[in-house]
Design a protein around this nucleic acid. Structure first.
Length: 631
DNA sequence: TTTAGGG
DNA sequence: CCCTAAA
């Protein structure tokens, strides 16, 4: 069931059992396990256990309400405990409770899922299944279930789960409508809302694809990959879905059951539980799943609930706090969090756009903003291949940074410099379909990347090359010219959207070039001659030989010089320089700084600009500065 | 395009 | 250095 992208985790491992109900007496114990990025299971640490412990306190007090589920979902999507069955002999009832709690969470999440589905109901064919079962009922029944389970557990230190095979009668209980929903979730998801007992078939990660119709398979495909498919080939669909679920390309096309990341034959279900893989922790068995719950998509709004977060433990633990928040508030909180995560920034127009984008999406009721925001955060935190799926499923495609060019594996959506405007559907599909679809383009892509990776003679070629197709750049070195062509090719091929001049992609950063004293002197000289602010003039006349210095650079440098005069000079007067002196950095000669200061004061206060007048005298000073032995 | 200014 | 807004 679990879709693991990069560093996430699979969800659970469970022995196949078909106990229909809680009456079962099969001894089951739960073990706390952390799922590492590579899919291996590691025994949970004390901290992990503690993290979940406080859930027990809340458990009976306030069960998550529908308003709460947004948060629950958030929690669930990040760090999940899911039941794991194994043959350990002893169990801790506390942790069992945790597991139970998770069950509730699962059910609640499902409720939420369906509710949001209902809210944003775009397809008339969908039914609000949640109506059939008021949340209270579900929760209550869950509670009953819990009690029974706990009793069982406390007496025999065993636990019976209510796991059902996905093809079992449990599923059949669902009416046609809910069935549809369930089917859509032939993949990582919590399901079985309308039944009083949580359907763990999905949680267990077992999926029967054989019984699905083409339409259902297509739904599952969409849920899995986040995009539509028109393929009607059942086998193909099955393969794709399973591949998507199992991250494997070696998949049989029929009779397959996705189980614990493994594809097993339908009949092989009863076979060997890979106990060996499960490190036994003294007490119990719970599988701690981080980062990886994918919610089944339903008619396009799937991505809204698919909610990946990759944050460190600290960040995740924050999420455990179950603060009852209304969805609206939740949005606000999350938004605020986003703001705090990002560097504080003045709300420029663009920023406002970004924010309002979220709002817009919210207003659609599709709840796509969380996912989008997630993508934002995630991208900033940790590049993950999965981002593409997210983005794709959102219908919003994030551009990637330069490292993209080497190949798909290094595509890193870079949101903060995100392309605005319409999503590049083509690009995503291109990415998704992989090299086989458009191998030519891919090769070109790579080739360009490699070519551009070579630094041009002035060190700016990379950047320029990328900018060229988008802006008009008069300076063109050879490599740039070639690159322009190719990149434009790419643009038309890959990004079918017309390249707006403004749609610059901050793919690369200009090669940093330390300012030499000579340059500084020229700059100061130029300022003295033409006046501060005439940067383009200074550049033309004084920096003609430094093609890599733009007028903006000059302006920035001058600003820095001004700052230096305001800080460095007094400090030098004080005598002691508290900071370590980096020998590789040549301090700007005080004489020059002094002149900068003079120029600045003169030009800023003087109002009427008379810089040229000062030129001769300053020039001589510069000579002095040069001769003062700083270089 | 250039300049000014925040990040 | 980057990114924008404004001129």
């Amino acid at each position: 069931m679990e879709v693991d992208d990069s560093n996430g985790a699979l969800v659970n491992k469970s022995e196949g059992n078909d106990f229909e109900n809680k009456g079962s007496s099969d001894p089951v114990v739960y073990q706390l396990v952390r799922v590492e990025g590579d899919g291996t299971l590691v025994p949970a640490t004390e901290d992990d256990v503690l993290q979940f412990e406080h859930f027990l306190d809340d458990e009976k007090v306030d069960l998550p309400s529908i308003e709460d589920v947004g948060h629950v979902e958030e929690f669930f999507s990040n760090d999940c405990i899911l039941p794991e069955k194994s043959d350990l002999e002893d169990g801790c009832s506390k942790l069992r409770s945790i597991e139970i709690y998770t069950q509730k969470l699962g059910a609640d999440i499902e409720e939420n899922r369906i509710q949001s589905l209902d809210d944003s109901l775009s397809s008339p064919s969908r039914c609000g299944v949640a109506h059939g079962h008021p949340p209270d009922k579900v929760i209550t029944e869950q509670g009953d279930n819990n009690i029974a389970q706990q009793d069982n557990a406390s007496t025999e230190t065993t636990k019976s789960t209510v796991l059902n095979d996905c093809c079992s009668a449990e599923k059949d209980k669902a009416d046609a409508c809910s069935r549809h929903v369930d089917d859509t979730s032939t993949e990582p998801s919590v399901s079985g809302v309308n039944s009083s007992v949580p359907d763990f078939s999905i949680l267990r990660g077992e999926v029967c694809l054989d019984d699905l119709t083409i339409r259902e398979l297509q739904d599952a495909f969409r849920a899995t990959f986040g995009r539509q498919t028109t393929v009607k080939d059942k086998i193909w669909l099955k393969r794709r879905i399973i591949m998507g679920l199992a991250n494997s390309y070696d998949v049989p096309s029929s009779g397959c059951v996705v189980k614990d990341y493994k594809i097993v034959g339908k009949d092989a279900k009863q076979q060997i539980p890979n106990i060996g893989e499960i490190p036994k922790v003294g007490l119990q068995a719970v599988s701690l799943v981080r980062d990886q719950v994918m919610y089944p998509g339903n008619e396009g709004d799937s991505p809204s609930s698919s909610y990946y977060q990759s944050e460190d433990q600290q960040g995740s633990s924050k999420r455990f706090k179950r603060v009852p928040v209304h969805n609206g508030e939740l949005q606000g909180n999350l938004l605020a969090r986003q703001c705090t995560n990002k560097r504080a920034r003045k709300p420029t127009k663009r920023y406002i756009e970004e924010l309002s984008d979220i709002e817009v999406h919210d207003s659609t009721g599709k709840l796509s903003s969380p996912a989008k925001r997630t993508a934002h955060e995630e991208v900033l935190l940790k590049p993950r291949i999965s981002s593409f799926h997210e983005a794709e499923s959102l219908g919003t495609i994030y551009p990637t940074r330069k490292d993209t060019l080497g190949g798909f594996s290094v595509h890193v959506p870079y949101v903060s410099r995100m392309r605005r405007g319409r999503p590049r559907k083509d690009f995503i599909s291109f990415v998704d379909k992989g090299p086989s679809v458009k191998p030519n383009t891919n090769r070109v892509h790579t080739a360009i990347g490699m070519m551009l990776a070579e630094e041009g003679e002035d060190g700016n070629s990379i950047r320029k090359a990328y900018e060229v197709p988008l802006t008009v750049n008069s300076e063109t070195v050879h490599i740039e010219a070639v690159a322009r062509k190719e990149v434009q090719n790419l643009q038309t091929k890959v990004y079918s959207a017309p390249a707006k001049p403004k749609a610059k992609q901050g793919l690369t950063r200009k090669h940093h070039r330390a300012w030499t004293l000579c340059e500084v002197v020229k700059l100061v000289d130029g300022v003295a001659r033409y006046g501060a602010g005439k940067w383009s003039e200074i550049r033309k006349l004084s920096f003609s030989s430094y093609s890599y210095r733009t007028s903006v650079d000059l302006k920035d440098k001058w600003r820095n010089l001004i700052r230096a005069t305001q800080t460095q000079l007094p400090a030098q007067k004080d005598g002691g320089c508290p900071r370590k002196i980096n020998p590789s950095i040549i301090p700007i000669p005080p004489s020059i700084l002094l002149r900068v200061k003079e120029l600045n004061e003169l030009q800023s206060q003087g109002g009427s600009f008379t810089a040229p007048v000062k030129f001769p005298g300053q020039s001589s000073k510069v000579v002095q500065g040069k001769g003062s032995g700083f270089l």
